[in-house]
Design a protein around this nucleic acid. Structure first.
Lengths: 219, 219
DNA sequence: TTTTAATCTAATTGG
DNA sequence: CCAATTAGATTAAT
């Protein structure tokens, strides 16, 4: 059972373009693709029927549909990613604004205080009510789900494939799949990983009041 | 030539774990992999030699190395991505704090003002100096690179494969490659796309002073 | 058993 | 050569 790939014989040293392996044969592909468009998850009957029509096994047809669906879904995820990215940049932008506003508020406040109690005992925590023991979790609106509870467990090289298959000598290369990192963004792109460096040194450069920073997370 | 895939025979109805296929024949794989570890980009001579040793064409050996390198690189990118992600979450967290602080500052300020000029003419813009015509671009520290100049061009369904190969009838499935979206994050994970919704409705729910929002970017 | 998600490999294409 | 994609396949988990 399970016949699979059919070899091919071309001398390779011949020219270049060869029709390798065995795919689904263009013509038949149309038929199958049509079906796919009408319903991406056909009954196994249909699959068998198709298999006969194009002359390969039902199994293969099934796989074909599977992969198709998977790839389709992947596309969607791409969209989500780009959304996330845009989201991020908006956030970053707003963060900057907010920071500036905050700064100016603080400044004003200081000025105010100095005016109000003109030069009276210069040593206080230069901001007694807004800085220190505040916003631990006040729940003013609806947080309490924020702070993803940073906890670092021994990561990175903890194999999760618990022991399956010792003999196949799997190359340790887990692969990964991204390109995304620079694509699809259409409008808002840029932001290479080197940008990140400068970005973060911009943003994290004031008095960090925030309990954990990202570099604490990665050993 | 081009021996490639060796079949396998297990009756499928057997148990479960099967050793399917085989591509470079374990034994030989070791040899090649060794080579790879010592130098990932060998001279073509070496490649030819290897090809002889394991009995497939130089071309294939070359491809093998190529793919190998590619996979390795992809791995690295994964790392960068997870870093970015952590980075993002840190930023989000800080943003929250900042926002709250800002809020409280504003509140105090209002109170202050009301005290100072006790109940005098209730109708003013309840905050004259910190809100309106400020921070357009002051360049207090180092922006001027922010605001990625949101511009939306007709995107999404603009095919870019201009006309190459009319006969091959490429399935329009461009594929995409991500999973990333929820993996490798190890420490800071969570943040599914539905979290995003709530997140943003948290964050963007006050007077938005920020010129563009992410939903403006996607049609 | 089938499906799904996640990988993986070998090969192709275009630059 | 590389980057990107592709098709077919496998496997773990459900």
């Amino acid at each position: 059972m399970t016949l699979k790939l059919i070899q091919e014989q071309t001398p390779t040293i011949g020219k270049k373009k060869k029709k390798k392996k065995k795919q689904i044969r263009q013509k038949d592909e149309l038929r199958v693709t049509d079906r796919f468009e009408s319903e991406s998850r056909p009954e196994l009957e249909i699959k068998q029927q198709l298999a006969n029509e194009i002359g390969l096994e039902p199994r293969q047809v099934a796989i074909w549909f599977q992969n198709r669906r998977a790839r389709l879904k992947t596309k969607q995820i791409e969209k989500e990613y780009s959304l996330l990215k845009a989201n991020y940049e908006a956030l970053a932008s707003r963060f900057e604004s907010l920071k500036r506003e905050n700064q100016s508020l603080l400044t004003q406040k200081l000025k105010n205080q100095r005016v109000k109690q003109h030069g009276n005992s210069n040593f206080r925590h230069q901001s007694e009510s807004s800085h220190d023991g505040r916003f631990e979790d006040k729940g003013t609106d609806s947080e309490s789900k924020r702070k993803p509870s940073f906890q670092l467990e021994g990561n990175d090289r903890k194999e999760e494939k618990t022991s399956s298959d010792n003999n196949s000598r799997n190359i340790e290369c887990t692969r990964g799949k991204i390109d995304i990192l620079n694509q699809t963004g259409d409008a808002v792109d840029s932001m290479t990983s080197s940008d990140w460096q400068s970005f973060q040194s911009n943003c994290f450069l004031d008095e960090s009041r925030c309990s954990s920073q990202w570099w604490e997370l990665l050993s």
